[in-house]
């Protein structure tokens, strides 16, 4: 009985890898490998272009220009304010969506997460129609209090909150939904009121998800463009955030646009690093 086997060489390293991780040959079939490589190149090439074309020599002087600093400062504080607002009202809403039961709950959940898929510019138009000077609420704010929201820093915060808050809500809601409610029951048997249970048990237990949701929300707010430019416009120093500054700089000073883009890229990388436990590791975990 002669049977043809096909022996291959197994290096010591590969032997060890298979012994510890398990599994067989690692090589991917060409039919999968080629498109995968195309995807990688497509995703990374533009970023590479950014790094190659960056005006490294002028970087310091560009980034220390007053209007650049202004845009950066505006972006940072509005994104932070938007995140703070999202935490204050979004977390209670996430709790309600995860724990309460009332008619229309599912519809409400769909509606509050709508901004996730809504084109931001549509969000901007919607905000304008609600809070604009002729808007259904804005009209009265203007008439009664002399308060005009559009094209102000407040409008920037509102636009960013509108677009970014759903990220926080769905992250926290998911965590609340999967959290073991046994701990909350235990807290109740120890005499804790519902609010105490929320503060001392529920919130700490979803803490990591809360932090992840907040970072995600902040990153989304920082990069917000469409809703902001529609609802808040682009007044340098007042409503011109980084993404908007980049967009205009591309016409007048391309080097400045690239430099500003680098800053946002750096922030994005920092966000990824901050969330690595949550997003990256969980995807490779067993």
């Amino acid at each position: 009985m002669t049977r043809k086997l096909a022996p291959t060489r197994l290096t010591a390293g590969e032997r060890a890898r298979r012994a510890t991780i398990g599994g067989g040959a690692r090589g991917a079939p060409a039919a999968l490998l080629a498109p995968a490589l195309v995807a990688v190149v497509f995703l990374l090439l533009p970023l590479l272009g950014l790094l190659v074309r960056a005006p490294w020599g002028r970087l310091g002087s560009i980034l220390s220009e007053p209007d650049v600093l202004q845009a950066l400062e505006l972006s940072l504080w509005t994104a932070t304010a938007a995140t703070a607002v999202a935490l204050m009202v979004g977390v209670p809403l996430a709790w309600l969506l995860a724990r309460a039961s009332f008619p229309g709950l599912r519809l409400l959940r769909a509606l509050v997460t709508l901004p996730l898929v809504l084109p931001p510019v549509v969000g901007g138009v919607a905000l304008l129609l609600a809070f604009g000077r002729e808007g259904i609420v804005g009209k009265y704010l203007d008439q009664w209090f002399g308060l005009t929201i559009p094209f102000s820093p407040l409008a920037v915060v509102m636009a960013e909150t509108f677009v970014a808050m759903p990220f926080l809500i769905i992250t926290v809601e998911g965590a609340l939904r999967t959290a073991d409610q046994g701990f909350e029951e235990a807290a109740a048997t120890l005499g804790a009121s519902r609010m105490t249970v929320f503060r001392r048990v529920t919130l700490p237990m979803v803490g990591p998800s809360l932090a992840a949701g907040a970072v995600l929300c902040w990153a989304r707010a920082l990069g917000e463009f469409g809703a902001t430019i529609t609802f808040a416009g682009s007044f340098p120093g007042r409503t011109e955030t980084m993404p908007i500054a980049i967009y205009y700089a591309l016409e007048t000073d391309p080097d400045a646009a690239v430099a500003l883009s680098l800053v946002l890229l750096l922030v994005s990388v920092a966000v990824l690093v901050a969330l690595r436990d949550r997003w990256l590791r969980s995807s490779v975990a067993t």
Partner: peptide
């Protein structure tokens, strides 16, 4: 309501609060 009953319940799987130390678990009530 549970919070208003002077009742102590030791759960089957204990349900100790994972984010609190032993001391703070005992101090919870």
């Amino acid at each position: 309501e549970a919070a208003g009953r002077p009742v102590g319940l030791v759960f089957q799987n204990y349900r100790l609060f994972p984010h609190l130390s032993v001391l703070d678990n005992v101090a919870f009530a």
